[in-house]
Computed example of a mutant assay.
Amino acid sequence: MQEQQEVLAEKPEGLNERRSQAGPQTQRFFYYTYGMTVESDIELPELMPVPASASADISIITAGITESLADATFSGKWVQLSPSQCQLNVQGIARYRIEEGRRILVDRRVLEDERDGVPARDVRQYLLGMSLGVLLYQRDWLPMHVSALHTPTGVWAFTGHSGAGKSTLGAWLHYTQGWPMISDDVAVIKPEDSQAYLYPGPPRVKLWKDALQALGIDTKGLIRDLTRHDKYHLMVDEAFHKRPEPLKALVILERAEEGETASLEPLKGVEAFRTVMGALYRPDVGQEFNSPAALMARIAQLTDRIEVYRYRRPWSLEDMDSSVETLLDYIKRDVK
């Protein structure tokens, strides 16, 4: 628990109290993501719009939020937790309160010495990222930090530490093989399903500038990431599958040593379990809303349902076409 609290406390201090210039919302917007219908006060162009529904799965509401949770069991510099709620105070952007896996309250604030308005896209990045991730855990689901594609032999997902090249590899396979994408950031497994269906999230790709250049994609007009200046958000709505698909394989990416050729190795037992556990999105948060035993049981179930691999490859983008041949041969091995 102490280790989790230290991770959760690594963000900036909360906000001084001054509301942005955005006025009250009257229009309601409806979307589909992670297998849920979303009713929102805030327009979310990153999500797939759907007809209005009287029975949306979750609601996103603009509302005033107190600075602290009344029954908080943990209070960090930017995160507060209670048994049924989580509050994020993102300096200069907004305050988010996630409740019971059903609602996200958004209170837009700015620092007193900052501009009066906060760009809507900045508010949405934290709403569609950490806030939705917390809500998924509150519903006892498994948000997976993966890049995934629908290949000719099923859905293959790629995981690894930050900077392992998940998005780069996923985008490379999409643009060179024409395979539709399922996820580039977070996708969801619902343990209650009879199969390990992977539910897509927002249809966007986050790529570093050098990867965009290697793929011949112009950065003009793309949205820069808030925390990583040389990373860009690329909306590829038409390239994404919108509905859940059974997950066939999870692959952990590793960097090959100099002179080492690309290799793909099946993983079993403890190694496979650790790989699946490592693919969880913000597991420190997940353990706040799920007991360690329950979380491990769900991971063990998922590990038994899918294939797990380790893929080691050279890091150079110039060698990408040759280094992915081993992976492509394996993925396509059952194509008739």
Rank of each mutant, 00 (worst) to 15 (best):
M1T: 10
Q2A: 15
Q4K: 11
Q4T: 15
E10R: 10
P12K: 13
E13K: 08
G14D: 01
R18E: 06
Q21G: 11
A22R: 08
G23N: 11
T26Q: 13
F29P: 11
Y32F: 14
Y32T: 12
Y32S: 15
G35P: 09
G35F: 03
G35S: 08
V38I: 15
S40G: 04
L44R: 10
L44A: 06
L47K: 14
M48Q: 14
T62R: 13
E67C: 01
S68F: 07
S68A: 07
V79F: 07
Q80K: 09
Q80Y: 05
L81E: 06
S82N: 06
P83S: 01
C86R: 14
L88M: 14
N89P: 07
V90Y: 09
I93A: 11
I98T: 14
E100H: 14
G101H: 11
D107W: 09
R109L: 15
V110Q: 15
V110E: 13
E112C: 12
E114M: 13
R115F: 07
G117E: 15
V118E: 12
D122L: 13
V123P: 04
Q125T: 12
G133D: 04
Y137F: 04
D140L: 13
W141I: 06
H145E: 01
V146N: 08
V146R: 10
L149T: 05
L149A: 05
T151P: 00
T153M: 01
W156N: 00
A157W: 02
F158S: 00
H161A: 08
A164P: 06
K166M: 05
L169K: 00
G170S: 02
W172C: 05
L173E: 11
H174V: 09
Q177F: 02
P180V: 12
V188I: 11
S194R: 06
P200L: 15
P203I: 13
R204G: 13
V205I: 13
W208I: 03
W208G: 08
D210A: 15
D210L: 09
A214T: 03
L215K: 02
I217Y: 02
G221S: 07
G221A: 09
G221Q: 05
L222G: 07
L226H: 12
T227Q: 13
K231W: 03
Y232C: 02
Y232N: 03
V236A: 12
V236F: 09
D237P: 02
F240C: 13
R243Y: 11
L247Y: 06
V251P: 02
L253M: 00
E254Y: 06
R255M: 08
E258F: 07
G259P: 05
E260I: 05
A262C: 06
L264M: 05
K268Y: 00
G269T: 00
G269Y: 00
E271Q: 12
A272L: 03
F273C: 03
R274E: 12
T275L: 02
L280N: 10
R282S: 12
D284L: 09
V285I: 15
Q287C: 10
A294P: 01
A294V: 03
A297F: 03
I299F: 01
D304E: 14
I306K: 00
I306E: 02
Y311A: 00
R312H: 03
R312S: 12
R312N: 04
R313W: 07
S316H: 04
D319Q: 14
M320C: 08
M320V: 11
S323F: 10
V324C: 05
I331W: 09
K332G: 03
R333E: 13
V335Q: 14
